[in-house]
């Protein structure tokens, strides 16, 4: 079943009197029980998609979409209360910057326990409830890999290392036992062991509790170890979308290929000290976006036609948006 269905999501913001499209017709589908990776460079709009789904965008952003639904309910037209209910129980979000996302004037314990839904709290009297809340909090913190839970819960966000705060954010997201976890770069700032621990926790939850995960990251190695499907974002446009292995082995879009090539761990026969493959140029700023396919000026396969925005085409499960895809012959056959 499709949980989250986003079609042609466009985000605009006014900059010097001109509307700038930070996201241009981005599409994304999240099925029940899958781990979907959302990949893209910094500034490609990954976090904007996350914020648009969670409703955390500042009011000056103009959100338009052909479809943006949660289990068939339109997220854009529903009331605040309905949306809050969904955010409370079904969708959990881990944001990028944990220190900014935690209240500086409240201890972590307060913030974690207030996220626990009433249904999970046992007991009738407030001290029983308190006890029960603390038990839930402690066991959850152990799960996300915090050892000294007493100590960490008694402190404020700025007094603890960033990775502990990040783990708290993950714990706060998981405490409501959501259907979907949207994790925006959840392992940022963590060292390898902790990272592995968090990723295996995600995988376990995905297997045992059927938790669907939208995994936003640029860590291709982490993605390859867990993602079922992948969406590649470039400069606010979704360029390619499909099952992970298929996208990785036979990317259609030149950008996807460049992205995969840029990860040294994906090319086993890479010689030591050889130059890494990268596209020329940099990701354009929002004020100077190229028309048509936004990869155009940097694309090795670009032609005149690329000034028109390519429509999305689909082969099997694999969607791409490119006039001149790779690994396909002229007739568009594999």
């Amino acid at each position: 079943m499709i949980l989250l269905d986003i079609k042609n999501l466009t985000l605009e913001i006014e900059s010097n009197g001109v509307l700038v499209k930070a996201l241009d017709k981005a599409s994304l589908i999240l099925e029940e029980g899958e781990i979907r990776a959302l990949v893209g460079e910094s500034g490609s709009g990954k976090s904007l998609i996350v914020k648009a789904i969670s409703g955390a965008l500042p009011p000056q952003w103009i959100v338009t979409a052909d479809r943006m639904t949660w289990r068939g309910q339109n997220l854009l037209t529903m009331t605040r209360a309905e949306r809050r209910k969904i955010m409370r129980r079904d969708i959990a979000v881990v944001f990028q910057d944990p220190v900014a996302a935690l209240d500086p004037s409240a201890t972590l314990q307060e913030q974690l326990t207030e996220s626990i839904p009433e249904e999970f709290v046992a007991g009738t009297w407030f001290w029983q409830k308190r006890r029960s809340r603390l038990d839930i909090a402690h066991s959850l913190l152990h799960k996300v890999g915090i050892k000294d839970t007493e100590y960490c819960m008694a402190h404020y966000a700025h007094e603890l290392p960033v990775d502990i705060c990040q783990k708290f954010m993950i714990a706060m997201a998981l405490v409501s036992q959501p259907t979907v976890l949207i994790a925006d770069d959840p392992t940022r700032g963590m060292e390898t062991n902790t990272k592995r621990q968090i990723l295996s926790l995600f995988k376990n939850l995905n297997k045992t509790r059927d938790l669907s995960i939208l995994f936003v990251s640029h860590d291709l190695v982490a993605i390859s170890s867990m993602a079922d499907t992948m969406t590649v974002l470039y400069c606010g446009q979704t360029v390619e979308d499909g099952p992970f292995q298929s996208v990785r082995k036979k990317p259609f879009h030149p950008y996807t290929k460049a992205l995969m090539d840029s990860a040294p761990s994906f090319s086993p026969d890479l010689q030591p000290k050889s130059a890494l493959i990268a596209l020329g140029g940099t990701i354009p700023t929002l004020q100077h976006l190229p028309i048509g396919c936004r990869l155009g000026p940097r694309c090795p396969r670009a032609q005149k036609k690329c000034v028109e925005t390519p429509v999305s085409r689909k082969i099997n499960q694999h969607t791409y948006r490119c006039h001149f895809p790779m690994h396909l012959d002229d007739k568009g056959i594999l």
Partner: peptide
């Protein structure tokens, strides 16, 4: 306008 209020809102509080 801070991030933590936005986050608290997305937690559905």
């Amino acid at each position: 306008a801070t991030e933590y209020i936005k986050t608290a809102q997305t937690r559905g509080l």
